[in-house]
Amino acid sequence: MKNDANVKLSVPARPEFVDLVRLTLYGIAAKMNFSYEEIEDMKVAVSEACNNAVLHAYGGEENGGSVDVRFDILGEDELRITVSDSGESFVPSGDLQSSNLLGKSIEEIQSGGLGLYLMQALMDSVEVRTQQGTAVVMSKRREAAGKASV
């Protein structure tokens, strides 16, 4: 697959379209030679980001808006995925980089906090931007590529 390329996808902010995003991710990541496990991790993280947009960005309106997804192929071994909407902005509580959910029970975790925690656990980096809607920017490097450079 050509290095430094991108694919853009815009789908209605409805649950039945999240599978289309997952299928697109699978196709791109498979062509980049990500492992099955890495692809499954990315699919979970992207689903969480898309579901947050579907559920929260447009206040549950049936024809509320769209979810835009951009897949950026960076070099031979890194994929950056941006999931964005133009709905109501989401502001994560606390410092996103130092999520302290370890040792907490499910009841202690705020609504939405578990999804962000999952994204952070499954991806190499996660950034939430809240200007004119919400954008979640996640990236993943191929594990085999990381081992080869050590």
Score class of each variant (00 low, 15 high):
Glu78Ser: 10
Thr82Ile: 14
Val18Leu: 04
Tyr36Pro: 03
Asp124Pro: 14
Lys31Pro: 00
Phe71Asn: 07
Met119Glu: 14
Ser111Lys: 11
Ser99Arg: 14
Gly103Ile: 06
Ser98Lys: 12
Ser111Val: 14
Leu25Asp: 04
Arg22Ile: 09
Thr24Phe: 00
Asp19Trp: 00
Lys140His: 13
Ala30Ser: 13
Ala30Tyr: 08
Val69Glu: 05
Leu114Val: 12
Ile39Pro: 09
Met123Asn: 10
Val128Leu: 12
Ile28Val: 15
Ala121Thr: 15
Leu20Lys: 08
Lys43Asn: 11
Gln97Tyr: 13
Met32Gly: 03
Pro92Leu: 00
Ala57Met: 04
Val44Thr: 14
Leu96Ile: 14
Ser93Val: 07
Gly94Pro: 12
Gly94Asp: 06
Asp19Thr: 07
Gly113Arg: 04
Gln110Glu: 13
Thr24Leu: 05
Asn100His: 11
Glu108Ala: 15
Arg70Tyr: 02
Ala45Tyr: 04
Ile39Val: 15
Glu48Ile: 04
Asn33Lys: 13
Gly112Tyr: 01
Val137Arg: 13
Leu116Lys: 03
Leu79Cys: 06
Leu114Asn: 11
Val67Lys: 00
Gly94Tyr: 05
Arg14Ile: 01
Glu107Asp: 14
Ala121Met: 15
Asn52Ser: 14
Gly75Cys: 07
Lys31Phe: 01
Val44His: 04
Ser35Pro: 09
Gly115Asn: 01
Glu107Val: 10
Leu122Val: 07
Ile81Val: 15
Glu76Gln: 11
Gly103Gln: 10
Glu76Ala: 08
Ser125Gly: 13
Pro92Gly: 03
Val83Trp: 00
Glu62Gly: 00
Ser111His: 12
Ser10Glu: 15
Pro15Ser: 06
Leu122Glu: 11
Lys140Thr: 05
Glu62His: 05
Glu61Phe: 02
Ala53Tyr: 06
Gly87Gln: 02
Ile73Gly: 03
Leu102Gly: 09
Gly87Lys: 01
Val137Ala: 09
Asn51Gln: 10
Val44Gln: 06
Gln110Phe: 08
Pro15Met: 00
Asn51Glu: 07
Gly59Lys: 02
Glu108Trp: 07
Ser105Ala: 11
Glu38Leu: 04
Glu16Lys: 12
Ala49Gln: 09
Ala135Phe: 11
Glu38Ala: 06
Asp72Trp: 00
Leu23Ile: 05
Phe34Lys: 04
Ala30Trp: 03
Ser98Ile: 07
Ser84Lys: 13
Tyr117Gly: 13
Asp19His: 05
Gly87Pro: 00
Val11Gln: 11
Ile73Val: 15
Ser86Met: 05
Val18Ser: 04
Leu102Glu: 07
Phe71Ile: 11
Arg22Tyr: 01
Pro92Tyr: 03
Met123Lys: 10
Asn33Trp: 06
Phe90His: 09
Asn63Gly: 05
Lys104Tyr: 12
Asp77Phe: 06
Lys43Phe: 04
Asp77Cys: 10
Glu62Pro: 13
Gln97Phe: 11
Val21Met: 06
Glu62Leu: 13
Glu108Asn: 09
Gln97Asn: 13
Ser89His: 05
Lys140Trp: 11
Val21Thr: 08
Val69Gln: 04
Val21Pro: 10
Leu79Gly: 08
His56Pro: 09
Val91Phe: 13
Asn63Trp: 09
Val67Arg: 01
Ala45Gln: 10
Ile106Cys: 06
Ala121Arg: 15
Ser86Trp: 03
Glu61His: 08
Ala13Thr: 06
Tyr58Phe: 15
Gly59Ser: 11
Thr130Ile: 06
Ser10Ile: 11
Val67Asn: 02
Asp124Ile: 10
Ala45Met: 09
